[in-house]
């Protein structure tokens, strides 16, 4: 294989995961635990990973669950999956 090996992203219809680059400490725990291996680590140590194969997300949130910094990574619910709730009526 003489050609350089490239990473080419999946088509991504939705935005399953949002990383806050300012909060992320680049620990790569999300990269470590993701079942789909959808993140790629930042080329430089300490940089935020990239959601690269976002189309393969299972939406279970292990990345959020393992993240040591609250708010650094968010599992984003798609608009069509937003469930409605309202004040309950009195019994």
């Amino acid at each position: 294989m003489s050609e350089p090996v490239m990473a080419v992203p999946d088509p991504m219809v939705f935005t399953p995961i949002i990383i806050d680059d300012d909060l992320c400490i680049g620990c790569n725990l999300c990269v470590l635990v993701c079942q789909a291996d959808l993140f790629l680590p930042h080329p430089e140590k300490g940089g935020a990973p990239t959601v690269f194969y976002g189309g393969e997300c299972w939406y279970e949130g292990s990345c959020v669950d393992h993240c040591p910094v609250p708010g650094a990574i968010t599992l984003n619910t798609q608009l069509f999956n937003r469930v409605h709730w309202e004040e309950s009526t009195p019994s």
Binding site: H84, W85, E86
Partner: peptide
């Protein structure tokens, strides 16, 4: 449960869902 802690409990709570006050469609 396997797919509820973050997408349901955390995300709904963050958006203001309170099981003692709200009903879920």
């Amino acid at each position: 449960e396997g797919k509820t802690k973050i997408p349901i409990m955390k995300n709904y709570t963050d958006r203001g869902f309170d099981p003692s006050k709200h009903r879920l469609q």
